[in-house]
Nucleic acid binder design. Structure first.
Lengths: 195, 195
DNA sequence: TAAGTTATATAACGCTTGTTATATAATTTG
DNA sequence: CAAATTATATAACAAGCGTTATATAACTTA
């Protein structure tokens, strides 16, 4: 047999770039083939359906996103850092953001359910340490920040507008402060009730 | 000339129902015609392009949404009420939510820019009165709540999951309390600096 | 009531996209 | 080196959708 010029990985990479630049809706046998300078055959040879290819692109995008989020400077402010990266991602990669959260490829990438997943546990531990809060409290603050950041990011990704990073950071910090203040208030109420 | 059996309004209504039940991506000459029990001709006769029809559907959806939001019980809690309706809408009408905020038909339906629009001014006035805050403060809280609610709603509309209304209300209230606490804290800081 | 106008039905064309059929050329292996 | 295998190219088909062409039937009005 001849050795393959076009590998499965090359196809996924090409499709990923199409999705990144033009959106997942423009990923098809012909656009991907064009990016690879080949015919549509290699695409349909390595993947039985285009759907299968798109799922692979989703997978790759998901990993790309996770790595993107974790690339923070200050580990003391890990939650704010991740939140900011979340919004940054929507600014810089709106098409990938939409693929991840609006295209129907997400199976269970649900912020509200993922909070108890084992992958998130170590991150929550780190946050818990940096914030001096219990893991339960950390979860509550995290969900609040995540929903706020997701709202911000969704609007940006769907309106392709420029946003000042400073403004975003300030807004996020306010939301964070608010969530922390609610925590403290609830703690006060608890101790008051005990007295 | 024969009197029209099919009016422009009937076409928009039919297309709206298709968008509502199956998503705007399933609105086309044939699906709308089928809903009206007619051929595709009336559709293309009253609208020069399908794009034009879809824009009309977007318009109708936008009005539907605005009315939906404003249907609140307790005017004392107008901001929370609107926020809750915003999320409710995403739960009950996920396809319409996606049309409004994720389909590219929104021209300037941008929460972050609409805050200074004249249509919102009277609503902000009412909130300002109920919350005992200045209009500027009200805007700040409103943006926070709006982003939070939008994040919540986006996740729900894209994952078609059932959510407990009580939980949603509680989460929203926490976000609201947080935003109000931040306001109070900032006021304290200001008066401290004056002393 | 006849003529003119126009709303609708039926068909069809062109384009895009998923998928498949056939042919060809590049390797491997006996 | 011949034979078998298989990756790729070329071409084509089918389905879906926007749009258009043609014919017909239903009003209006002169």
């Amino acid at each position: 047999m001849p050795k393959a010029k076009i590998t499965r990985e090359m196809i996924v990479d090409a499709a990923f770039e199409v999705a990144r630049a033009e959106g997942i809706e423009n990923v098809n046998a012909r656009t991907v083939a064009e990016k690879l300078n080949c015919s549509t055959q290699p695409v349909m040879y390595h993947f039985t359906t285009i759907e299968e290819l798109k799922r692979a692109v989703y997978q790759k995008t998901d990993e790309f996103h996770t790595e993107y989020l974790m690339n923070i400077e200050n580990p003391e402010e890990i939650m704010l850092g991740i939140g900011l990266n979340y919004i940054r991602f929507a600014i810089r990669e709106p098409n990938l953001f939409r693929l991840l959260f609006q295209s129907g490829y997400a199976v269970e990438n649900n912020l509200l359910e993922m909070i108890d997943s084992p992958e998130l546990a170590p991150v929550l531990e780190m946050m818990s340490g940096a914030m001096e809060t219990s893991v339960e409290q950390t979860k509550e603050v995290f969900v609040t920040i995540a929903l706020f950041a997701h709202g911000y990011a969704s609007i940006i990704a769907n309106n392709s507008l420029e946003y000042d990073e400073k403004t975003v950071a300030k807004d996020l910090e306010r939301a964070y402060n608010g969530a922390m203040l609610v925590l403290r208030e609830e703690e006060n109420e608890k101790t008051l009730r005990k007295e």
